[in-house]
């Protein structure tokens, strides 16, 4: 059974159809890239998957559960993690606190536990801190835990935002342009991180514009244009697809 199954997904804003009759599926463990010209509906798709937007029509089945129309915190609780194009971290909090907050979806401490500080509360705090540290290690931010997130470099903040989402043990990770705004030397590091994430068993879905990166990393590619998928397949299949080439004429980025 596929990890994610999307059928007939539609999203209209007033008269504008951002996503029209989109269907695809994601298998466990694969790395799929979503590409397409600007305005093709890629970020809208992510918003629909996580629940930030409510679909006008269609169905989203994640890990066997129908999550169509649920709220973002509910899809996160089910194991869907997502980063944003614009790097979002809690700038005034420390790096470690950021990954601790990222684990809040599985929080067990309630009001009573917080006030009375039961053994369970203290164990959870310890556990959360340890896990935070190991995640920071995994993404390559090992020695920064006490620094304020806002003081990190752009690339480090991207790693942090990925770490925050990883901390919640997602099954599916949606990355929206993870290398956006990052300079050329640093891209390699981020690509390597994404590969490591996939190797650890997490299914990854990527929105990217950098063609070489997409071609070299992806198991499959989904091409969107005007809100529908015009092509789907392995990198080789997609690269030789006539419609894809047409859609991209003049908009190809070499990276």
């Amino acid at each position: 059974m596929a990890l994610l199954e999307v059928s007939g997904l539609v999203k209209t804003f007033g008269g504008l159809t951002a996503v029209g009759n989109l269907s695809f599926s994601l298998e466990q463990g694969e790395l799929v890239s979503v590409i397409g010209p600007n305005g093709a509906g890629k970020t809208t798709l992510f918003n629909l998957l996580t629940g930030a937007y409510r679909p006008t029509a269609g169905e989203i089945i994640f890990d066997g559960n129908d999550i169509t129309g649920c709220k973002p915190f509910q899809s996160a609780a089910r194991g869907m993690g997502r980063t944003f194009q614009k790097t979002t971290v809690f700038r005034d909090e420390t790096v470690l606190d950021n990954v601790i907050i990222g684990q809040s979806v599985h929080l067990k401490t309630g009001v009573w536990g917080a006030i009375v500080r039961t053994a369970g509360t203290r164990r959870e705090e310890e556990r959360v801190r340890e896990k935070g540290r190991s995640i920071l290690d995994f993404v390559g931010l090992a020695n920064t835990e006490g620094r304020l997130a806002g003081n990190l470099t752009e690339e480090a903040q991207k790693r942090l935002s990925i770490a925050m989402v990883l901390a919640a043990d997602p099954k599916l990770l949606l990355l929206d342009e993870p290398t956006g705004g990052v300079n050329l030397e640093e891209i390699g590091g981020l690509i390597e991180l994404v590969k490591r994430i996939q190797q650890s068993g997490i299914t990854v879905c990527l929105i990217e514009h950098k063609m070489r990166m997409v071609m070299s990393m992806s198991d499959r590619i989904i091409v969107l244009n005007y809100g529908t998928n015009i092509a789907e397949g392995t990198p080789a299949e997609v690269a030789s697809n006539k419609e894809v080439i047409e859609a991209y004429l003049g908009a190809r980025r070499v990276a």
Partner: peptide
Amino acid sequence: RTFVAISRDENLAEALGI
């Protein structure tokens, strides 16, 4: 911590599953 997260950036907090 979740309270503070909400006060800093409610949308991000929600996206993180809070």
